[in-house]
Structures are given as structure tokens and as C-alpha cells.
Write a protein that binds this DNA or RNA. Structure first.
Length: 350
DNA sequence: GAGGGTCAAGTCCGT
DNA sequence: ACGGACTTGACCCTC
């Protein structure tokens, strides 16, 4: 087992808190979890309401969601230093980029409220050394071949950057990562073309992640001199059917793209209910699974927990070089259990 | 209170 | 060409 520094090597989770005691009633769990997790609405519902009522709703959601970010970071701050990393969900300010509703957030009282509260939350994160990030969703396609989609995607990306900026991030290269996939048919050139149109803060935060279907690691490596790269080791496994190694030259180039800042990689594993009966001590063999009829579309879906020890051992070989964002359905429960399992292994080995 | 229908946006795969 | 998956629930509404 390799050297392990509690204060440097982080494992985090994404967007949502789950209470550890799952034996509690559904209602009680909801009461506990609800304030910590984001809520949202739909354009359709908002536009069906009188303007006044819709605005009230947006106010309520915005206040609730900003407070939920605060509570989430407060929770992460109670974790050991090696688990102080979390992704903030995108629903903080619902419909922020929708043409009918973006005005709402430009109103001075709303804007001031968001700036003031998010600044304090950024301070809280820095005070407790919580590493934060964001990840715009599937509709943010900066490299689309449709100019309208690119325009909308820039707005959507800059929305995330507004949050980062209000929290006090974006001033230095990669003080916060806001991660997207290449996504569109424009590929790496499409991403490069859009860079001059982004704010300085956006360029400081943008990371590009390799996709599990279309644009893989080789494509994102073309951007190594332009942006920081996020290696998703499971995506690479799905797409290229390869367990990339931590000493691989391609990973070295990923590390270099962060220009001295400690990178983050993404790690997930195929669903446990898809690979029923699979030995948790054996690495899933992609080629074999595909030959026996499993589809990539199914294999890409995230598991509840990090159930495969062999896969975890592989993922954790990256930890000396980068933080690991665990992507799983059971969120903090999966990442915490993974860390605790790893630490027990280290203790046993000493 | 439970259950069913619905939701801004893009892209890919399979038929 | 088109539907469904991905994401992926969460929410509203009706009963």
C-alpha cells in the first residue's frame, strides 16, 4: 500500500447528501435530507402561474437552494480532511438562463442576496478546506455544430461561473473546477473555438472530461495545452475497453494540463444489479461482458455503492497523483465507505 | 398520503 | 426518421 496523506489525498461525492441510517422511515429520511439537497421547478409550471406567484416560488427555491449548499458544505466540513471534496448541484438558481426568467436574477434585491450568501458559503468552504466543483448537465454542449446551441451552452456555462464567482472562485487557474464533456460534433476544435468567448473566470474553471461514447481520452488530450483535463477512468473503460494505469503517459499529460494544481479524476463502476453474481474481487472484463451480450449503454450506468474491490484498488492507485470524485447513486455513503475500506487496508498492511 | 404524469435544453444508439 | 436512454429524480396534481 502506498504512502497516504490524510490532508492531501481527497475522495469526494457529487451533489446530494444521503443520511447513513437507511433503516429510518422514508418520511424521516426525507425530513433530514431535504434541507441539504437542491430543489427545482419547471418552466411549464412557472409560466402557468401568475407572475407574482412564479416569482415567489423562484425566491423560495433560490433561498432554500443556497442554504442547502451551505448545509452540504457544512456537512462535508465535518468529514475527515481526506473526504472534504464535493460537487455542487446545478439547480441553485432554477431557470437562470431561460429567456423568460433570467430577468428574475438580475433584480437588485435578488442579485444582492445571492452574492452576499454565496460569498459567505465560499468563505466557509475555504475555511474548512472543502474542495468544491460543479458540472453543467447534458444540455451544455460548448462544441455543438449548431451555433444556437453553442450560444445557449455558453450562457449555461457562465451561469455556473456566476455561482463560482459569487463564491469567490475563478480568480486563479483551477481554484474550482466546472467540468463539461466535449459532447458536440465540433469536437476539440469546437471547444478551442469557444474559449475566446468565455469570461476569464470561466477559462480558469473549465475542465474537459473524456466521454464514454463519443469523444474519448485521445480527443480530450488534444486540448491538454488549452484547458485542464478530467480523466474519467470508468468512461475510458467503457469506451476504449481499457483499464488505464496511473503510470500511463496519457495520465501524465492529464496531470500536466492542471499546471501544478492537484488534478481530480472521476471514478464510477457499472451497476451491481446489472452484474449480479459478479465476483467483487475480480475486475469486470469489458471485452468479455460485451461479448456475452451486455450493452455499453447499460454498463455506463452508475452503481449504488462501490461494490467492486478490485476496481476500487485500481482506482485508488491514482490517489497519490489526483483527487477522486466518486460518482455513485448512494453519494456520500459510497465515497465514505470506499475511504474507510481503503484506510482499514492500509492499517492492516502496516 | 399515494400514485401517476410531466419536465428548457443535446446527442447518441438501435431499429 | 424516430423513440428511448442517458441523466434521474422531483415536482405537481388528482384521487
Amino acid at each position: 500500500m502506498t504512502y497516504f496523506d490524510q490532508t492531501i489525498h481527497r475522495v469526494g461525492f457529487a451533489c446530494k447528501y444521503m443520511h447513513p441510517d437507511r433503516t429510518l422511515s422514508k418520511k424521516l429520511l426525507e425530513d433530514i435530507e431535504r434541507p441539504i439537497n437542491g430543489r427545482t421547478t419547471t418552466v411549464k409550471w412557472l409560466s402557468s402561474q401568475p407572475k407574482r406567484r412564479a416569482e415567489e416560488r423562484l425566491w423560495e427555491l433560490t433561498k432554500s437552494n443556497i442554504n442547502s449548499v451551505r448545509l452540504l458544505i457544512k456537512y462535508v466540513a465535518t468529514l475527515p480532511p481526506n473526504q472534504r471534496m464535493v460537487r455542487i448541484g446545478s439547480e441553485v438558481m432554477p431557470v437562470y438562463t431561460h429567456p423568460d426568467w433570467s430577468y428574475f436574477y438580475q433584480q437588485p434585491d435578488v442579485k444582492t442576496y445571492c452574492e452576499r450568501t454565496l460569498a459567505a458559503i465560499g468563505d466557509l468552504a475555504r475555511e474548512h478546506d472543502v474542495r468544491v466543483s460543479m458540472h453543467p448537465g447534458q444540455f451544455c454542449v460548448l462544441a455543438s455544430d449548431n451555433p444556437d446551441t453553442v450560444n445557449n451552452s455558453i450562457d449555461e456555462f457562465e451561469y455556473h461561473i456566476d455561482i463560482a464567482r459569487m463564491m469567490g472562485y475563478g480568480q486563479k487557474f483551477m481554484d474550482m473546477k466546472v467540468n463539461v464533456h466535449i459532447g458536440g460534433r465540433g469536437g476539440p476544435d469546437g471547444i478551442r473555438a469557444v474559449l475566446p468567448r468565455l469570461s476569464t473566470e470561466a477559462r480558469n474553471c473549465l475542465t474537459i472530461e473524456n466521454d464514454e461514447m463519443s469523444w474519448g481520452l485521445d480527443a480530450s488530450l488534444e486540448l491538454a495545452n488549452d484547458v485542464a483535463l478530467v480523466l474519467d477512468i470508468h468512461h475510458h473503460l467503457i469506451r476504449d475497453e481499457e483499464y488505464i494505469q496511473a503510470n500511463d503517459d496519457r495520465f501524465k499529460r492529464v496531470i500536466d494540463s492542471w499546471r501544478g494544481v492537484r488534478p481530480t479524476i472521476h471514478y464510477s463502476v457499472s451497476r451491481e444489479d446489472l452484474l449480479v453474481g459478479h465476483d467483487p474481487n475480480v475486475l469486470p472484463d469489458m471485452k468479455q461482458l460485451l461479448e456475452s451480450g451486455y450493452k455499453k449503454a447499460k454498463l455506463r450506468a452508475h452503481s449504488d455503492m462501490m461494490w467492486n474491490h478490485a476496481s476500487n484498488d485500481w482506482a485508488l492507485t491514482f490517489l497519490p497523483y489526483s483527487d477522486i470524485m466518486v460518482e455513485s447513486k448512494f453519494k456520500n455513503l459510497a465515497s465514505t465507505k470506499l475511504v474507510e475500506h481503503y484506510e482499514r487496508q492500509i492499517k492492516a498492511a502496516v
